[in-house]
Simulated assay, not measured.
Amino acid sequence: MQAKHYATNVSVDRPDIQAFVGSLMEHGSSKGVFVNTSSFSTQAMVSVCHLSQRVILLGGITLADLIPAKRGFARTDMYHHADEGVDCLKIT
């Protein structure tokens, strides 16, 4: 598992995923989870589709959905990531 806290205007790109997969291979693992508080570039998302390893990408929106609202967390600061055409959550 790898977790990153990037600024809302910075997305995880393909080289970050490639480095993560290299680390998985080095440790003999066939699965991994990459958590990021902002978003993933299109190239990063496409790259995991062609891997022999199973890599799950959890970005800001998905991450926010996993946090129970009863604990005081809510989607309150949304913005649109024009480059990727997706809505993102700013987690502060």
Results as ranks from 00 to 15, higher is better:
44 A>I: 03
47 S>N: 04
91 I>K: 03
9 N>W: 12
63 L>F: 11
20 F>C: 03
5 H>W: 15
75 R>I: 14
26 E>F: 03
74 A>Q: 10
39 S>M: 00
45 M>I: 08
45 M>C: 07
55 V>A: 04
90 K>R: 14
12 V>E: 06
8 T>C: 03
66 L>H: 12
6 Y>T: 03
55 V>F: 07
28 G>I: 06
73 F>T: 02
43 Q>L: 12
33 V>M: 14
26 E>M: 12
73 F>Y: 13
5 H>K: 14
81 H>I: 09
3 A>W: 14
71 R>V: 13
34 F>S: 06
10 V>I: 15
53 Q>F: 03
65 D>A: 08
9 N>E: 08
31 K>Q: 14
13 D>T: 12
25 M>S: 14
92 T>G: 11
53 Q>W: 02
3 A>V: 14
85 G>Q: 00
25 M>I: 13
59 G>Q: 09
22 G>F: 01
77 D>W: 04
71 R>M: 12
50 H>A: 12
37 T>K: 00
17 I>G: 01
32 G>W: 10
74 A>M: 05
69 A>R: 08
9 N>R: 00
8 T>F: 08
76 T>A: 11
45 M>L: 08
71 R>E: 12
19 A>S: 15
62 T>D: 10
11 S>C: 10
89 L>W: 03
37 T>Q: 04
29 S>Q: 15
3 A>T: 12
82 A>W: 02
30 S>Y: 01
17 I>W: 05
57 L>G: 00
14 R>D: 08
72 G>P: 05
92 T>A: 13
41 S>Y: 04
81 H>P: 03
38 S>Y: 07
15 P>F: 10
59 G>I: 08
61 I>A: 05
20 F>N: 09
45 M>A: 08
31 K>M: 12
70 K>N: 04
21 V>T: 04
3 A>D: 02
42 T>F: 07
76 T>S: 14
51 L>M: 09
18 Q>S: 11
64 A>V: 05
38 S>T: 13
50 H>M: 07
67 I>L: 12
74 A>L: 08
32 G>P: 03
60 G>N: 05
30 S>M: 11
82 A>D: 10
45 M>T: 11
6 Y>H: 13
5 H>E: 05
68 P>R: 06
36 N>E: 14
92 T>I: 01
73 F>V: 06
90 K>Y: 02
18 Q>N: 13
33 V>G: 06
67 I>S: 02
12 V>S: 11
35 V>K: 05
29 S>M: 13
52 S>F: 07
81 H>K: 09
13 D>N: 14
35 V>G: 06
74 A>K: 10
49 C>I: 07
37 T>L: 14
68 P>W: 05
42 T>V: 10
28 G>Y: 02
44 A>T: 04
41 S>V: 07
4 K>A: 10
9 N>L: 01
50 H>V: 03
57 L>Q: 10
79 Y>W: 07
58 L>G: 02
29 S>H: 15
74 A>E: 04
55 V>I: 07
57 L>H: 02
33 V>H: 11
12 V>Q: 07
75 R>V: 09
9 N>Q: 09
37 T>S: 14
21 V>W: 07
53 Q>T: 09
3 A>M: 14
81 H>Y: 04
46 V>Q: 11
58 L>K: 09
65 D>K: 10
81 H>R: 13
14 R>A: 15
48 V>T: 11
84 E>Q: 10
41 S>N: 00
75 R>F: 02
71 R>F: 15
48 V>Y: 00
61 I>E: 01
62 T>H: 10
83 D>T: 05
65 D>M: 02
80 H>F: 15
71 R>Y: 15
